[in-house]
Design a protein around this nucleic acid. Sequence first.
DNA 1: CGTTTTTGACCAGCGC
DNA 2: GCGCTGGTCAAAAACG
Length: 313
Amino acid sequence: MDTSSWVDTSLDLNPFSATPLRLEETPKKEPNGNLIVFGKELSVKEETGALVEELNRVNEENKKLTEKLTAMCENYNALRSQVMDLMSKSPEKEIIPSKKRKSEISDNNGNNCNFGVVGNSESCSTDEDSSKKPRQEIIKAKVSRVYVRTEASEAGLVVKDGYQWRKYGQKVTRDNPSPRAYFRCSFAPICPVKKKVQRSADDQSVMVATYEGEHNHLPHSQMEPTSGPSHGSSSLNPSRPTMSLGLTKSKPSGAGAGAGEARNSSSNNPEMDSPQVRQYLVEQMATSLTKDPNFTEALAAAISGRMFSARSN
DNA sequence: CGTTTTTGACCAGCGC
DNA sequence: GCGCTGGTCAAAAACG
């Protein structure tokens, strides 16, 4: 697994690796040639020493942060492999519809190259597309499926994913005793995304959310609470949904998160780039970082350093 | 009072 | 054409 690759490139979370911490502003020089560092006026003699010292300090900081990031990646890798292992041990029975209708058949089965995940229709369905004439639905509808484990006590068909949804229908389907709920994005018709949520026929504690389309706006939890959703159980929730971390699948431009990618390695997992996944991972990373006292300490040191430097200007 | 949820009716695709 | 099924509509109810 090359987690570092997606951390570095897909998520752009690691600015240190690409451009190590550097002094963006060189210390101010006085007209007489002396240097002012942290409010101290240094002679030309001391200038080099101070610069070297500062450089070393920054380098150390950079090193620390890089190490932390690496450790985080390794932890994530371990966690991810555990989840994969668990899922492969108790594989959810693939939903094989005896009689599926048009687009769902072509979208889901056609690219069912990952366990439990339906990526968007363009990701890996080749045979069907080549043998049949292209369908409009395949092009316009990007479908992804997310498996979400919920608390047993949680009764409602609610999958918290950061977006605000409006329910417009509910049906009892033939192949599953639990009802299926139909949601539209609250920003519809501006945002055309729909999702279907249904409990898994096998495991009632697992919610299966099927997303259609791609959000053209930020998640609600990322937006300013201007409108103040009165019922927003799914929004502004500090405890993120139990979306299967790193088990996602969709194309770079694909629709949202999928989950349950248990058999494929992440190296050929283009979904890591999807906006929702990015969003989620960024939040996870941010949470992890801010929880780390060492990181906050380092950050505070860096900020205070900058403040001192700015004050001296 | 505006927004969301509920729920029965309706519509369209598919197989026979 | 008919029946089955999934998906959507829309009026009424519920909610904050």
